[in-house]
């Protein structure tokens, strides 16, 4: 675990010194500020729209950062051959993969923490500037928003596992990023697949849909943005279930990635 943590900290350092990460984070903060411009356009639903916009905005950009940085952290090591200087040391390949994954998780936590604070501050300030009455202030469910942001972090962790998995099996960072993004998009619509099942009667199509439904990570269940706006907080059992789902799915993807990576030729 010590060696994995050394790799993780180096991965975090690499990501933090990456100008693209900075650029996207600045873009996210500017976006949050720009959301204040939307208030005159929202006709009485200002707070709800701002909450929705802020959370969707940081969710989208943090996913972009995670997909592209996540797929490149392993792939770049292989392409630039920096991995040779690591794996020639007394270090297992699984420690390398876990280290890379943990480094990205640390980056996600930092991004979500900073951006989450930005969202909370943005909502708080707009609420203050638009409404001065306590009645409206209470309409914002800060705990639910925090919980939705925490589940965004879980979503990013799962995306990281997917990106590490695709980094291990594909030969290009771009292909890895495209596959990860595609799987994320499919994963956001798995609930719709469930609805589709009710309409389809042919058995083999039902099977195909069922396989996709169970195989693709269900990112939509981790999306609690709408619930947060209406103050709906998942109960402890639901939260534990979703947390366990992320842990198990992430564990499964990392194990497969490690098994593939163990036999990968380092050229």
């Amino acid at each position: 675990m010590k060696k994995a943590s050394i790799i993780a900290l180096n991965t975090l350092k690499e990501a933090i010194r990456n100008r693209i990460v900075y650029a996207v984070m600045i873009l996210m903060l500017l976006g949050l500020l720009a959301s204040q411009l939307l208030t005159p356009l929202t006709m009485g639903e200002q707070i709800k729209v701002i909450q929705d916009f802020s959370m969707t905005f940081i969710n989208f950009f943090s996913i972009i950062v995670t997909v592209f940085v996540g797929t490149s952290v392993v792939r770049r090591e292989l392409d630039l051959k920096t991995i040779q200087l690591i794996l020639s040391r007394p270090i297992h390949r699984y420690q390398f993969i876990i280290g890379k994954f943990l480094g990205m998780v640390l980056l996600d936590i930092i991004i979500i923490f900073i951006m989450g604070m930005g969202v909370m501050l943005n909502i708080f300030l707009i609420n203050k500037s638009v409404y001065y009455s306590m009645w409206y202030f209470h309409e914002i469910h800060y705990i639910a928003i925090l919980e939705a942001i925490a589940f965004m972090a879980l979503q990013l962790i799962l995306i990281n596992a997917v990106s590490v998995f695709f980094s291990a099996i594909t030969s290009s960072a771009v292909i890895g990023a495209l596959f990860t993004f595609f799987l994320y998009v499919v994963g956001m619509f798995t609930q719709n697949l469930n609805d589709l099942l009710k309409m389809v009667h042919k058995s083999y199509i039902t099977w195909i849909i069922k396989i996709i439904y169970y195989a693709v990570p269900n990112f939509s269940t981790l999306d609690l943005k709408n619930e947060a706006i209406y103050g709906i907080i998942p109960n402890i059992n639901q939260a534990l279930f979703l947390f366990s789902y992320v842990v198990l799915y992430t564990g499964f993807l990392l194990i497969v990635a490690i098994l593939i990576f163990e036999n990968k030729e380092i050229r």
Partner: peptide
């Protein structure tokens, strides 16, 4: 691996360090 020090033909490093 504990006994080895390896220098590749064209060593690549982390350029941000």
């Amino acid at each position: 691996r504990a006994y080895i020090g390896y220098m590749p033909e064209n060593p690549s490093f982390y350029v941000y360090l």
